[in-house]
Design a protein around this nucleic acid. Sequence first.
DNA 1: TTACTATATGACTATCCAGTTATATAGTAA
DNA 2: TTACTATATAACTGGATAGTCATATAGTAA
Lengths: 115, 115
Amino acid sequence: MATSEASPAGSAESMEIIAQYFRILGDAQRLRILHCLQSGEHTVGEIAAATQASQSNVSKHLGILRANGLVGRRQDGNRAYFGITAPFIFELCDIVCSGARQRLERERALLPANS
Amino acid sequence: MATSEASPAGSAESMEIIAQYFRILGDAQRLRILHCLQSGEHTVGEIAAATQASQSNVSKHLGILRANGLVGRRQDGNRAYFGITAPFIFELCDIVCSGARQRLERERALLPANS
DNA sequence: TTACTATATGACTATCCAGTTATATAGTAA
DNA sequence: TTACTATATAACTGGATAGTCATATAGTAA
């Protein structure tokens, strides 16, 4: 019988699952949307204005984020309010951010003396 | 004059930089390679065997990982040894992993009673 | 030198996906 | 009802990229 447990750590399937999450986060516009939602729930229109994107663009990205469990949707009258459901994404961003900073510093240290 | 500092937290440019890191990690084969390197340095051939991929496939992915500062290369005679230079990627994977697990549990709890 | 092994890379193809436009759906208000 | 607003979505297009194959490069060994 197949295991009813999660895939083993290094398996091809589990890697694909993890990669899928990273792929979702690998788009600047989606990151902008998530960043916007960090301050709390917002409507599609608000997000579109904040990220300077079209309504249909934002709606599409929100659909992807929601399908992958990163945001949630609440309808109120005419509008749809979206909010973060997976706060761990901000941990990810923080780690990447400091990782990128470290790399820049390391590379700067290797460069000829400009400053 | 332009700022000589890093981009502001929510700026379009900084989002693109972060997204780029996630995009690099958003490929299962690259994750497999990184997972393989978690146990220490390995040659291209060793990685190819471990991940069941072609030599040229692995070499190409290693080039991408190296160009983005995630792995380093050391040549020894005929072979090239690659190793992790950005251990924070494993933190990222761990966080994503537990996030994914939580989501599965949450969804399982919402499903009709099968077990 | 030649032969062999290990790695890198150019060219090509197929696939995926972000963005746009136009349209559909649905709630509100007159 | 009609008109308006907010959101979702189908269809299309262009660009990015993963995989493969063939070839180039380079180190080793005879």
